[in-house]
């Protein structure tokens, strides 16, 4: 589904990713762990197409397409979802309006009929319930006044509504208390753990992986994947630290 080959990227002319390769197949959940500054968030933003994250080498193929040739909104329509570490507040725009427009913009690109107001609300209610989020919160302006945990749950609701093929979740576990962590973890499983979907979890800690069991764990250091293993690698990292394991 996703094939990253030898990817290099710079932020403000500073090289961050230095020849990163990673292949994710449908049905798989991968976790990328690594110390601060290793390039974890840069990987997420580069795959999402954020301006300012410049690809200087390598290739990324997503579902048979050249991902790097697509604009951010085209990547979304192709089935990529980027869960933000710091979801952005958009005053004056309600979640409901934003998500309905976003869902229908994606559907339009894929040649599907737009969702009616009723169809959209039904879908939004289902997904909000899954993440134990009150529908009233989705009538409020996007992320405005939300706590850290509410923002992350709202990200998962968005993922459920937009129903992507591949979710790249950047530190979804940061800022979550224990209950919210479990709810988000269960949300990821029920939305994304399917034979035709895949997940790339970017995280510092083992704790999210207690709920979302990865098939593969990678250690990112110095802009490259330096070690790959199964779920046991995350436990080893937690015990021994990055330096000992990745050295």
């Amino acid at each position: 589904m996703l094939k990253i080959e030898n990817l290099s990227a710079t932020v403000a002319d500073k090289p961050i990713l230095k020849g990163l390769s990673l292949t994710i197949n449908a049905g798989e959940i991968h976790a990328i762990m690594g110390p601060n500054g290793a390039g974890k968030s840069t990987l997420g933003y580069t795959l999402g197409g954020r301006p300012g994250y410049d690809v200087t080498g390598g290739s990324v193929e997503f579902d048979g397409q050249d991902l790097l040739a697509l604009e951010p909104h085209e990547r979304a329509a192709a089935g990529l979802f980027l869960g933000f570490q710091y979801p952005v507040e958009i005053p004056g725009v309600s979640f409901v309006q934003f998500l309905r427009e976003a869902a229908n913009a994606q559907r339009k690109v894929r040649g599907e009929a737009p969702l009616s107001g009723g169809e959209f609300l039904k879908l939004a209610k289902e997904q909000a319930a899954l993440l134990r989020m009150d529908m009233d919160m989705l009538k409020r302006p996007v992320n405005v006044g939300f706590s850290g945990g509410e923002k992350k749950r709202a990200e998962m609701v968005q993922m459920g509504i937009l129903n992507p093929k591949l979710a790249i979740l950047d530190e979804t576990d940061s800022g979550l208390d224990i209950d919210a962590l479990r709810i988000c973890g269960e949300g990821i499983n029920s939305i994304m753990r399917k034979p035709d979907k895949a997940v790339l979890l970017i995280t510092h800690y083992q704790r999210l992986l207690d709920y979302v069991q990865p098939d593969f764990v990678h250690v990112l250091a110095g802009g490259r994947i330096v070690k790959t293993g199964g779920p046991e690698l995350a436990l080893q990292l937690e015990e021994q630290g990055y330096e000992a394991v990745a050295a």
């Binding site: 329509a77 952005v88 507040e89 998500l99 690109v109």
Partner: peptide, 22 residues
Amino acid sequence: GLFYLQSRGLTPPEAKRLMLQA
């Protein structure tokens, strides 16, 4: 904000219109 909206599938003009409308 613009990138956030675009990352969910809105084209750049749609994202701008939504923010300006608000």
